[in-house]
Design a protein around this nucleic acid. Structure first.
Lengths: 298, 298
DNA sequence: TCTGCCTCGTTTATGCCGTACACAGATTTG
DNA sequence: CAAATCTGTGTACGGCATAAACGAGGCAGA
């Protein structure tokens, strides 16, 4: 029954006992260190407790169970606003944007700068997952988002809300990016995990699989690509994928831009064009008002 | 040391003992049934053995270990060429394509039909993963591909090899699609797994998390999207994502098409344009020959 | 000062998991 | 016919999450 919502969203006050004894924070920090070093499957209640010098069961006085510990670790780690990594080509605009909230303050129209903003956020997620690869290993459809996860989500949504995309498309696009980053991160961890477990490097292991490669010569396309060096220095799969997906989203925005007039900018429902005068943008007075209010609020 | 390559690629002959006794095939089939019903984490050697009426350790006479069993299950399942599911919108062309091999037989130029072909293969993978959701749960970077996995890969590559994409781009694009299908499948399984484990439906569970939703009202973009019904009937995330990614690939192909002349069609290296006459397509006589040979071979 | 409760950590135990190893019966091979 | 090989069994180990009962210290009120 205890799902950890309260734990995740608790006020982060001063933990009263600074000296000895277990605290939630200490447990979470130990968990993060452990997972950084050994991956999520290397994270066991025993090991966390050992690292802190307590017995396994002592942890359960502070955390309901392993799953909730992981949730706490996740949110803790998301609060590290990963600083710029110079090794990233970041096309991020230097001007600092307001973190959240659409910026239809007149100066730029219809969120034209969505792409660099969204790209920067995707890269930030990517950087975070390279620092803590186990993040991508946290699976499940019932991960309660903590404050930091929600803030990131909010920020990503806000990049697209100024575009002509319909509400459910904004959400779908952001989810797509999110899943993409996670998928890339996952295929980044897996080699690490295998190397840890086996002690054999990836390259070495695959190199010892000659009997497999011999069979592959029977496939013409694979062989042809092999011979023309397609595997010699492969594309950076994150960069490649991100670009493709952003291009795809851009194409959709373009499409919506051209046919903008037939759907409400606020709720996405189709709207019949006005017979005379300026083309309509909202399907109803209610939507117009709502848009006005939200534009005004923040 | 036994990695299962031989097992995966063994000739599938008549298993000599038809009556009693354990066989690899029986074990693999039992494993598939179990995983279909209980997911990959519900697959244990004990349960497989029980289902067959043998002891746990008897399995190890036929399979080196759990991991290799899973690999065998994977390849077994990939041989089911999933028939058309009428619930899919399949834009697959009706004319049956040769399964493998580039088709530069003159009739169609530069693989213009790559998109429906690649899309059909992605959908086929998606169908397979809906039938056997545990497929997406098989993780790891050292999964030895069986004959069926390689055949699928070959077919996907062959759709793009006729395009102006460079070799490493062909590979990156196919990998992107593959990871996308897996990621979607993974987020399809997870709710199932949670429901199995907890006995509570997804909807019910999230519905009971009021205390979370209240906190969300503090985020303007989320609230705005919520109020305009963005979550009411969400986009089909597989369809949405697939379209975006294919659009992204299409954009890249377009780009390459326009600037085709500056890279070798065979090896992708940049090539200087011929001073006179017809623009060059290959960077060297060697590449030209290689292309000719591979065009001729199959 | 005594009493009862509350917090925190410990001890013990249950039931899963993969699989190493020694053994036994059957079957095949020399 | 004897030896070797194949197949299946039983037991055992070390790992995991966590349930339940227990004990020591602090602290409030009588």
């Amino acid at each position: 029954m205890d799902d950890g919502v309260e734990l995740l969203w608790r006020e982060r006050g001063e933990e009263s006992a600074p000296r000895a004894g277990l605290t939630l924070d200490r447990i979470v920090r130990a968990g993060i260190e452990l997972a950084d070093a050994e991956g999520l499957e290397g994270l066991s209640m025993r090991k966390v407790a050992d690292r802190l010098g307590f017995t396994t069961m002592s942890l359960y006085r502070h955390v309901p169970g392993r799953d909730q510990l992981v949730a706490l670790m996740r949110d803790a780690v998301m609060s590290e606003h990963a600083p710029e990594d110079p090794s990233d080509r970041t096309d991020e605009p230097r001007s600092d944007h307001q973190d959240a909230g659409p910026q239809e303050d007149g100066s730029d129209q219809k969120g034209a700068d969505w792409r660099p903003r969204l790209e920067a956020l995707a890269r930030q997620g990517w950087r975070l997952r390279r620092r803590h690869p186990w993040l991508a290993e946290v699976r499940g459809s019932r991960n309660i988002p903590g404050p930091n996860a929600v803030a990131t989500f909010e920020r990503m949504l806000s990049t697209l809300i100024g575009t002509p995309l319909r509400p459910h498309e904004v959400i779908a696009a952001v989810n797509l990016i999110g899943r993409f980053v996670d998928a890339e991160a996952l295929s980044l961890v897996e080699p690490l995990r295998e190397e840890r477990r086996s002690g054999v490097s990836e390259e070495e292991w695959w190199g010892a699989r000659d009997s497999l490669y011999e069979r592959l010569t029977a496939y013409p396309t694979i062989t042809r690509l092999w011979e023309s060096g397609g595997w010699d220095d492969p594309e950076d799969s994150f960069e490649f994928g991100l670009r493709r997906i952003l291009d795809g989203i851009e194409a959709l925005i373009q499409e919506r831009d051209e046919t903008r007039d037939d759907s409400c900018r606020e709720c996405g429902k189709p709207l019949e064009p006005a017979a005379t005068g300026r083309p309509r943008v909202y399907c109803s007075r209610a939507c117009q008002q709502r848009a006005y209010r939200t534009r005004k609020k923040p």
